[in-house]
Amino acid sequence: MRQPLLLFNAKGIYCAQADVYLDPWKPVDKAIITHGHADHSRWGHKRYITHHTNIPIIKHRLGDIKVTGKEWGETFQVNGVTFSLHPAGHIIGSSQVRVEYQGEVWVFTGDYKTEDDGLAVPYQPIKCHTFITECTFGLPAFKWTRQEEVMGHINDWWAENRSEGRCSILFGYSLGKAQRLLKHLDPSIGRILTHGAIENMTNVIRSIADFPETTLVTRDTKKEDFRGALILAPPSAHGSTWIRKMVPYVTASASGWMTFRGARRRRAIDKGFVLSDHCDWDGLLQSIQATGAEKIISTHGYTDIFSRYLRELGYDARTEKTQFEGELAEMETAKEKEANT
């Protein structure tokens, strides 16, 4: 029997025919990178290949690396294997990787979401035989509300806090969620202030997209500047001394995990907004159907549960162990960034 086109080994997802890794977690010679989150783009590879919009992002995170940029749908060959990148809609610059060899097609999603967030190029289903999917929110309990509605709630929340003289602190990961929130905040309500980790990352992405004006919170920021303002901060800033001078404030978090009442209470956050950069249950199932794939491999999230359900639907589905962590990893990214600033 022929070796599978993509293997899961100790270093990552490996294409032996081309000697190329996809989002490897150990240093390798040649790595195709889906997007800039820390669990997918790691330090130490000799050559990086990614979508060109992701280059400034990973360079900001990883420093001076040797990287080649590709266009959406642009094909490139390595030892008879055809690779191409396609929009994943997860965060700005995020791709799926299509791999084709002798008529057999595999797609690796990295992380993805189906809703158009107005910032990342929207997800496009790609026909394939084997589909390697994340399932961070692979439970029927997860159902997203449309972004327009959620952002409406967030802006209302801010306006109400402002009318009561309070400052609104909104937690979101510094890469991805923060820019998505910023893009859709209503700057007519008040000033938008940022934490250093978010300000730096946003400045990098300003070369690719337009955002409302932001002001970095510094030691010199005056107490009255916080009143009625909205502060964008990474989740790790919650409970830190950094937010103490913003009193009186109200906190909120925007994440898929906010679906659970327990998740919000555990983090001792006032308000939870359910807004995720991953697929919800229906999003996952519809995407899988749209690829036409018969073989489904789940990489991270509620993999065992999700694979079992797919098998009941008639798919040849299994789970592979990876070091991807979905939304949790993004939280760590924020932490690590904060430590660096």
């Binding site: 659970f260 327990g262 359900y309």
Partner: peptide, 15 residues
């Protein structure tokens, strides 16, 4: 959804 999937979800949601 099947009952087992409900039970799994319940274990995770906790309520």
């Amino acid at each position: 959804i099947p009952l087992w999937l409900f039970e799994e979800s319940y274990h995770i949601v906790g309520d």
